[in-house]
Every structure is written in structure tokens, then in C-alpha cells.
Amino acid sequence: MSSKFGYTKLDSGTVNLDNANFDVAKKVAQQERSFTYCIACGSCTATCSAGNFTEYNLRKIQLMVRRGEVEPLRETITRCMLCGKCQMVCPKGVSTRNVVLQISKLLKQPVAKEQLTDKLHPTDDRKI
């Protein structure tokens, strides 16, 4: 779009649930029922190995999936090291590792072969 005025209209940062895509949330819940147990206490994030060094926030990731905000997660979700500490602290018994795996699987974009080697975590193919 033209910016002959020196500025352009800002995009809205509002989460609009009228256009949201809940497919990922629904599929994750089908595959891992405990996904719906989360009460956003943040224990997982507090203990998370990745979360202590990166922006990775499992509490927020789960919430973003529920709100249909999945696009920003495609890269973020790969930062999980699947260590399982989150699962140990979760008071609701969420199978957090499987939640992460399911989200990764659903968000996995077709990646060209040459790019694969650059990927830090080809999440779906990992052996657990």
C-alpha cells in the first residue's frame, strides 16, 4: 500500500475471536484431552528449561492456541526441549509434553529438504 503520506494505517493488535481459527485448539483437545485442564497457573513456565533462556512460555502458548493465535507459534513451539519438567509441576495433570508435540505436529509447515538441516528441532520426527 502507498505510503506517500509518510505513514500507513497500523494493524490492530486485538485478538478478534470472530475471525479466529480454533482448528488447532480443537484437534489438540481431541488428541490430548488434558489440554483443556489448564488453569493458567504458570508452574510450567516457571520451571521450563527453555523458558528461562528464551521467550518460550508454555502457559501462554496453550492460551494462544485456545484463542486461535497460532501463527506466531510456528517457530516458538520448536524451542521446547521436551525435558518434561513442566509435566512434573503441573497441578492439573496436563500431559504437557504431548500437548507440545500435538501443537508442533499441527503447526509443522512443509519444510524444504535443504532447510531441514538448519532446523534446530524437527519436532515431529523426534523420538521421545
Binding site: F5, G6, Y7, T8, K9, L10, D11, S12
Partner: peptide, 14 residues
């Protein structure tokens, strides 16, 4: 501030 006008415009657009 000219650089902020995109924000002003976005509100009107809304």
C-alpha cells in the same frame, strides 16, 4: 508527530 499518524488513522478506520 507525523510518524504517529498511522495510529491516528487506524482509529478512524476502525
Amino acid at each position: 508527530v507525523q510518524a504517529n499518524r498511522g495510529y491516528s488513522l487506524a482509529n478512524t478506520h476502525k
